[in-house]
Measured scan of single mutants.
Amino acid sequence: MKVIFLKDVKGMGKKGEIKNVADGYANNFLFKQGLAIEATPANLKALE
């Protein structure tokens, strides 16, 4: 799943980066902790 990092995550990515991560990792950790959001077309447009 493609995500946009909202904060730096050690060993994974930096704020503003777009990366592919495992679905479970994104849903169970990154999204719940507020560290990333899904890289949807609307979210990608908002990032620009």
Rank of each mutant, 00 (worst) to 15 (best):
K15P: 06
K10F: 14
V21C: 10
I18R: 03
N28M: 13
G24D: 15
A42I: 10
L30G: 01
E48H: 15
F31R: 04
G16A: 03
N20A: 13
E38C: 08
I4Q: 03
V3R: 00
T40D: 04
I18C: 07
K2Y: 14
F29N: 05
I4P: 00
F29T: 06
I4K: 04
E38V: 06
A46N: 12
K45T: 08
E17D: 10
K32P: 13
N28H: 14
L47R: 06
G24Y: 14
K14F: 13
G24F: 14
F31Q: 02
I18G: 01
A46H: 13
L30R: 00
K2N: 11
E17S: 06
N28G: 12
D8Q: 04
K45D: 11
F29P: 02
G13F: 10
K7Q: 13
A26K: 05
K32I: 11
G24W: 15
K7D: 08
E17V: 05
A22V: 10
E48I: 13
A39N: 02
A36V: 09
Y25K: 05
Y25M: 11
E38T: 06
G11H: 08
G13K: 00
M1D: 01
G34H: 11
L6D: 00
K15D: 01
A46L: 13
G11S: 06
M1E: 02
K7T: 12
F29G: 03
A22W: 10
T40Q: 02
T40R: 04
I4H: 01
G34R: 09
L44D: 02
K45R: 14
I18K: 02
N20Q: 13
N20L: 14
A39R: 00
A26H: 05
A42E: 15
M1Y: 08
A39G: 05
N43A: 11
G11V: 02
I37H: 03
D8N: 13
F31V: 07
E17L: 04
L47K: 06
V3E: 00
M1N: 04
G34Y: 09
N20M: 15
K2F: 14
G34M: 09
G13I: 02
K45E: 11
A42V: 09
V9H: 03
A22L: 12
F29R: 07
A22G: 11
Y25R: 06
K15F: 07
K32Y: 08
L6K: 03
K15V: 09
N43C: 08
E48M: 12
K15G: 04
G16S: 03
L47E: 07
G16I: 00
K32A: 12
L35E: 03
M1V: 12
N27E: 14
G24N: 14
N27L: 15
A42W: 02
L30A: 01
K45G: 08
I37F: 05
K2Q: 09
N43E: 05
E48L: 13
K2G: 03
D23F: 15
P41S: 10
D23K: 15
Q33P: 01
K10C: 13
V21L: 06
G16P: 01
I18A: 04
F31N: 02
I18N: 02
D23V: 15
T40P: 03
I18T: 06
A46I: 14
I18V: 12
Y25C: 10
T40S: 10
D23L: 15
A39Y: 11
A42R: 08
K15S: 07
G11F: 08
E48T: 14
A46G: 11
V9A: 03
M12D: 04
K7L: 06
A39C: 09
A26W: 11
N20I: 15
K19W: 12
N43P: 02
A26L: 08
L30V: 02
N43Y: 05
F5P: 00
N43G: 05
A39Q: 01
K32C: 10
E38W: 07
L6G: 00
A36C: 05
Q33K: 12
T40V: 04
N20S: 13
V9C: 06
F31Y: 06
K7R: 14
L44T: 06
L30Y: 02
E48G: 12
K19D: 01
K45I: 13
K45C: 13
K19Q: 07
K45V: 11
M12F: 14
K45L: 14
K32M: 11
L47D: 04
G11A: 05
N28A: 14
A46T: 10
N20P: 06
G11K: 06
L47S: 06
P41E: 13
E38L: 07
A22H: 14
V9N: 01
K2P: 07
L44V: 11
K15C: 10
G13P: 00
F29I: 11
N43I: 09
K14P: 00
E48R: 12
A46V: 11
L30S: 01
E17T: 08
V21M: 06
D23I: 15
G11D: 09
A46C: 14
F31E: 02
L35T: 04
K32G: 06
F29L: 07
M12H: 12
N27D: 07
G34I: 03
L6H: 00
V21T: 02
A39H: 05
N27F: 15
V21Q: 01
A42Y: 08
L30Q: 00
A26S: 05
E48K: 10
F5V: 01
N28F: 12
G13C: 06
F5E: 00
K45P: 04
K45M: 13
V3I: 10
K32V: 08
K14N: 10
I37D: 01
L6N: 02
L35F: 10
K19I: 11
T40L: 05
F31T: 03
D23T: 15
V9E: 02
G13E: 01
I4S: 01
L30I: 03
Q33V: 09
D8P: 06
V21D: 01
P41H: 09
G13D: 01
F31L: 11
G11T: 04
F29Y: 12
F31K: 05
E38S: 06
V9M: 04
Q33D: 08
G11Q: 05
F5N: 00
M12W: 14
V3C: 02
V3G: 00
N28W: 12
A46W: 14
K7N: 07
V9L: 06
F5H: 00
I37V: 12
I18L: 08
K7E: 12
K32D: 06
A42N: 11
K10S: 11
Y25T: 10
K10W: 15
G16T: 02
P41T: 09
E48W: 09
G34Q: 08
I37W: 05
Y25H: 05
A36M: 02
K32H: 08
L47Q: 09
E38K: 08
A26V: 08
A26Q: 05
I37E: 04
K14I: 10
L35D: 04
T40H: 04
P41F: 11
Q33N: 14
A39E: 02
D23M: 15
A46S: 14
G11Y: 10
L47A: 08
N27C: 15
G34W: 06
L30M: 03
N43Q: 05
E17Y: 04
G24L: 12
N28V: 08
N28L: 13
K19G: 07
A39P: 02
G24T: 14
N28E: 10
K7F: 14
L47V: 07
V21H: 01
L44F: 03
N20W: 15
E17K: 02
K10V: 12
E38M: 07
A26C: 07
M12Y: 14
V9K: 03
L35Q: 05
G13S: 03
A42G: 10
V21Y: 04
E48S: 12
L44K: 05
K7S: 09
N43D: 05
L44Y: 04
F29D: 05
P41C: 11
N43R: 07
K19R: 12
A26G: 05
N28S: 14
L35Y: 08
V9T: 03
D8V: 03
A42M: 09
E38A: 13
K7Y: 14
K15R: 12
K19T: 07
A46M: 15
N28C: 15
I4N: 00
A22I: 09
I4A: 03
Q33W: 15
E17N: 02
M12G: 07
Y25P: 08
N28P: 04
N20V: 15
P41W: 10
E17M: 08
Y25A: 08
K7V: 12
L35P: 00
A42S: 11
A42K: 09
A46P: 05
K45A: 14
F29S: 05
K19F: 07
K15A: 11
G13N: 01
L35N: 03
L6Y: 02
D23Y: 15
L44S: 04
L30T: 01
L44H: 04
D8A: 08
D8S: 09
N20H: 14
I4Y: 09
F5C: 03
K14T: 09
K45F: 09
A22P: 14
G24S: 12
K32Q: 09
V9P: 00
F5Y: 06
F5L: 09
L6E: 01
N27T: 13
A42H: 11
I4C: 05
G11N: 07
F29E: 05
D8F: 07
L35R: 03
E17I: 03
K7A: 13
K19C: 09
L35S: 04
D8G: 05
N27G: 09
L35K: 04
G34C: 13
